[in-house]
Structures are given as structure tokens and as C-alpha cells.
Design a protein around this nucleic acid. Structure first.
Lengths: 132, 132
DNA sequence: CTGGATGCAAAGGTTTTGCACGCTA
DNA sequence: TAGCGTGCAAAACCTTTGCATCCAG
């Protein structure tokens, strides 16, 4: 009956820092990157730590279409836009959308949250596409 | 210069029917189910056919959080709610949310679509949880 | 007939797990 | 010192692919 005492370790700290320095990275990207300064860290640890952070609410886990899971250290409420061209993920803030979504009622179901993923093309990819 | 002539086969037909008879199934669920009436069908075929349907726009491919890809034969615009308890997926229709999301502008990005996933508990799971 | 569609099986890639050892508190 | 966290490696999963064969058009 002992409360899960979360322990502070260099690995956790490093993983969190790397996460913040990258842009919506996947677990593998964090792993690759952290490996440069922490050659012995294991994939399993990265997945476990990231998963733990997400579960405890310290970070967010993004499960977007057509790509592996990504992690986001930004906790403030926001959505995401994903470029169909380069896969880049951009943060989207829309208090208006938030308000409307919060008001949506689903029969036989109690809603307690919603995620939105926008699709489209970022300016760079759009330009490239137009040139072609 | 020959247009990709899509061929009609019993497998495709059966896969589509099974998809309609199940509730937002994953490719594996479709495979298991179809196997009862089509013992020799292969996993690869189910994935290929489902993927092809999705790409051609005949069905929708749902990539929801914490679960494998699911397929939805309903093309009319709608969103999805996923029960945290049993994982059940429920269709959600909200013209209002749709309208608002269509109006969202993202800097440096051209939005051409949006998906929404609601989270919560279905009545059954809510009841079960309250009893505990 | 012809080329797309299947079946089969093996490969791929991501995420999870079991275990023994190490290290934080 | 106790037991959570880590490293390592194998397992589990879902999905994709290569290739020979089959069959719809």
C-alpha cells in the first residue's frame, strides 16, 4: 500500500529535455537523439519513460494519422495540424473550436475530452507542389 | 496508359459486407470474421483490400488513439467517440462543430480537413464504474 | 489471353515485456 | 537498504511485401 514513489533519474531528465528540444518527436526520434549524449540508454527505457510521463499527465501523447506516436511537452489545450507533404506537426489554438466541442452531446455517452487533427499542406509543401 | 481497372472479386465483396456487419472493426477483426466463411483468405489480402477501399474513398480508415486502425463504411461526414472503458467506437454527428472547424485558420498552413475524436465513457462502462 | 488480385510466408517496424542488476531516496 | 528504474534482448503485434499462381474481364 505504498504510493508509487516516482524517482528522479538522469535518464528521465534527459528524455524530457530532448523532448522539449525537438518538434513533436516520436519515441524513436527521442531515442536516436538522446543516444548521442547517453549511448547506453535503451529503447525500452525511452518508451517506458515517455509512456509514464504521458500517463501521469506530464506530457501529451499524440496519435495522429499515418505516423507513429508522437509526444508533446506542451500541456496547454491545443490541437494539431499535420502536413500531408512533409509530415510536420503544427500546434493549433482555437478557443472557439474548443468551446463548441465541449458543448457536443453524444447519446449514451459521457464526453470528457476531444482531440482534433487538421490535415493540409504547410506553405513550403504547397509552394513545392505548385511548382511541379 | 491504361487506367487501373479495378477488378471485382468475391473477396472484396465479402470484405465489404463483413465490414458493414461489424462495428468499426480493425483489419484483424475483419480477417477473423471473414475467415469463418472464407477459410483460405489471407491477412495480406484483407489489409490490401481495406487499404485500397480507403484510398479510393469507398470507406474511411480511422486512426484513433490507443488502438489499431479501424475501418468505417459510413462516408457521410461524422466524427467518433471512443469509450475509455470498453474501447467501443460511436459515431458522432455535429454540423455545428463541423462548421466551426472548417473556419479555423492555421498560420502558414492550408487546412483542407479535420478529424475529431471524443473521449469519455459509454453508459454501460459508466454504470459499471459507479458500482465499483 | 492479360494483368490485376490472391495466398502464403517472411520481412519490417514499432512498442511491450521479463529479468537481473544498479541506483535513488 | 528497499524497491523503483534501467539495460538488454526477445517477444508480441500490426502491417507490408515479394512472388508464384489464379481468375475476372
Amino acid at each position: 500500500m505504498q504510493r508509487g514513489t516516482e524517482r528522479q533519474t538522469k535518464q528521465k531528465q534527459a528524455i524530457y529535455e530532448v523532448l522539449c528540444s525537438l518538434d513533436h518527436p516520436s519515441a524513436t526520434e527521442v531515442y536516436e537523439r538522446i543516444r548521442t549524449q547517453f549511448p547506453t540508454i535503451s529503447r525500452g527505457t525511452v518508451f517506458r519513460v515517455l509512456g509514464g510521463f504521458a500517463e501521469s499527465g506530464k506530457i501529451r501523447k499524440l496519435q495522429l494519422a499515418d505516423t507513429d506516436d508522437r509526444y508533446d511537452p506542451t500541456l496547454a489545450s491545443h490541437y494539431h495540424a499535420r502536413c500531408r507533404g512533409c509530415g510536420r506537426v503544427i500546434d493549433v489554438v482555437s478557443p472557439q473550436a474548443e468551446a463548441v466541442l465541449r458543448g457536443v452531446r453524444v447519446g449514451g455517452f459521457t464526453v470528457d475530452g476531444a482531440e482534433v487533427e487538421f490535415f493540409g499542406l504547410c506553405d513550403d509543401c504547397k509552394k513545392t507542389q505548385e511548382e511541379a
